[in-house]
Simulated scan of single mutants.
Amino acid sequence: MVVIGIESLIQNEYFLFVLILISSLILAKVVHFILAIYLKAFAIRTKTDIDDIILKIITKPLCIFIVFAGFYFALKSLSVLEKYSTMINGMFFVGTVLLLALMVSRIFGVLIGQWLRVQKKYEKMPKLMGNVVAVVIYLMAFLMILDHFEIEITPLFAAFGLGGLVVALALQNTLSNLFAGLHIISDQPINVGDYIEIEGGISGYVEDIGWRSTRVRTLPNTLVIVPNAKLAESIIVNNSLPVLEMAAVVQCGVAYGSDLEKVERVTIDVAKHVQETVPGAIKTFEPFIRYHTFGDSNINFSVILRVEEPVAKYVVMHEFIKALKERYDKEGIEISWPVRKIYYAK
C-alpha cells in the first residue's frame, strides 16, 4: 500500500511540479556553494585576478538560470498549461538569452578593462568603451529574440529608420554629446586622471567620460559636469600630457638700481634650495631665470622651476615666493612698487 501510494504521488503532476521546483532550488544552492567556496579558493591562488572577477560575475546569474530552468520544466510538467506551451517556451528563450547577454557583457567588460590596463596608450580609458560593448551585445540578443519569434527584421528597420529620424531631432543635444564623447575617446585629448584646464576657468582632474558628460573634480573637491559637446569644442590645456612633469614659472621684478648679476645669483640660490627641499619639486632640476622686460618700475624676469605634477606647482611657488622675499630683504634687493616720475617744463 505504501509503495502504491508513493507511485501515485510521483505520478501526480502537482507533486512533480513542487518536486522540480525544490530540486532546482537545492541544485542552485549546491552550485553556489561550489562556486563560492571551492572554485573561489582555487581562483585566489592564481596570479591574476581576472578569474576571481569572472567567477563573481557568473555565480549569481548561473544560480538564477538554474532556478529559472527548474521553474520552466515545472510548468511544462502541468498538463493544464499545455495549451500555453508555445508562450512558456518563448518566455524561457527570452530569459535565457537575456541572462546570457548579461554574463557575456560583464565578462567582456572585465576582459576589455584588463586589456586597456596593459596597453599604456589606453591605460586610462573610461567606462564609455565598456558601455558601447554592452550595447552591442544586448543588440545582438535582441535580434536573436526577434529571429526566434520569426519577426521580419526588414520592415522593423524601416520603421526604426523613420522613428529614429524623429528621435534624433528630439534628442539632438543628447546625441551630439554622445558622439562628442566617442570622439574624445578616439582622439584622446584627455584621459581619466588627467589634470586639465578648460575655457571659462575650470580646472581639475578628469573623473569619468560618460555618455552625456565629462566629470571634472576641482582642487576644492567639487565636481564639475561638462557636456561632451561643449568640451569637444573648447580649448583644453592638458597638464598631464605628454608627461606629468611641468615647469612652474614665477614672474618677478627688481628695481632699476639693482645689480642684475647679484639678483640672478641670489634668485637661483633660493630656487635651488626650494627645488631640493620642497615636496613635489624635481630635486635634480637646475632652476634658472630670464630677464625679459623693462617695466614701469622694475626690470622684470621669469624664474623657471620644475615640479613632479601639475598640482605641486602651487606649493612650490608658494614656498619659493616666501623664501625669495626673505632673502631679498637680507640682501638689500628692492622690488619696487609702481612709481611715476613727473617732469615740469620751465
Rank of each mutant, 00 (worst) to 15 (best):
F42H: 12
F42N: 12
A43L: 10
A43S: 15
A43V: 04
I44L: 09
I44M: 04
I44N: 11
T46N: 02
T46F: 09
T48E: 06
D49V: 01
D52I: 14
D52K: 15
D52C: 07
I53K: 08
I53L: 00
I54T: 10
L55R: 12
K56S: 08
K56T: 10
K56Q: 13
I57E: 09
I57M: 06
I57Q: 03
I58F: 00
T59H: 02
T59V: 11
K60S: 13
K60R: 14
K60A: 15
I64H: 05
I64T: 08
F65I: 13
I66H: 13
I66K: 07
I66Q: 06
V67E: 09
V67M: 07
A69T: 12
F71D: 11
Y72D: 01
A74M: 02
L75G: 05
K76P: 00
K76L: 05
S77A: 01
L78N: 07
L78T: 08
L78I: 10
S79F: 00
V80P: 07
L81S: 06
E82N: 10
E82S: 10
Y84V: 12
Y84W: 13
S85D: 15
T86R: 09
T86L: 12
I88Q: 03
I88G: 03
I88W: 08
N89D: 11
N89K: 10
N89I: 07
G90S: 12
M91F: 14
F92T: 14
V94I: 10
G95P: 04
G95C: 06
T96M: 00
T96Y: 01
V97E: 01
V97W: 03
L98R: 03
L100S: 12
L100H: 06
L100P: 03
A101G: 06
M103Q: 12
M103P: 06
S105E: 04
S105I: 03
S105R: 01
R106F: 13
R106M: 15
F108W: 04
G109Y: 02
G109L: 02
L111E: 08
I112P: 02
G113Q: 03
G113T: 05
Q114N: 14
Q114P: 11
W115Y: 13
W115T: 06
W115A: 15
W115E: 14
L116K: 02
L116R: 15
V118Y: 07
V118W: 11
V118P: 00
Q119D: 14
K120V: 02
Y122H: 15
Y122I: 10
E123N: 07
E123D: 09
K124M: 13
K124G: 09
K124R: 10
K124C: 07
M125I: 08
P126C: 14
L128A: 00
L128Y: 05
M129V: 14
M129N: 04
M129K: 08
G130L: 00
G130H: 00
V132R: 07
V132Q: 08
V132L: 13
V133S: 06
V135D: 04
V135R: 00
V136H: 04
Y138F: 08
L139F: 13
F142G: 15
F142Y: 00
L143Y: 11
L143S: 04
L143E: 02
L143I: 13
M144V: 09
M144A: 10
M144G: 02
L146W: 11
L146K: 11
L146F: 12
L146S: 12
D147G: 11
D147R: 03
D147A: 14
H148T: 05
H148P: 08
H148C: 04
F149G: 00
E150R: 05
E150S: 08
E150P: 00
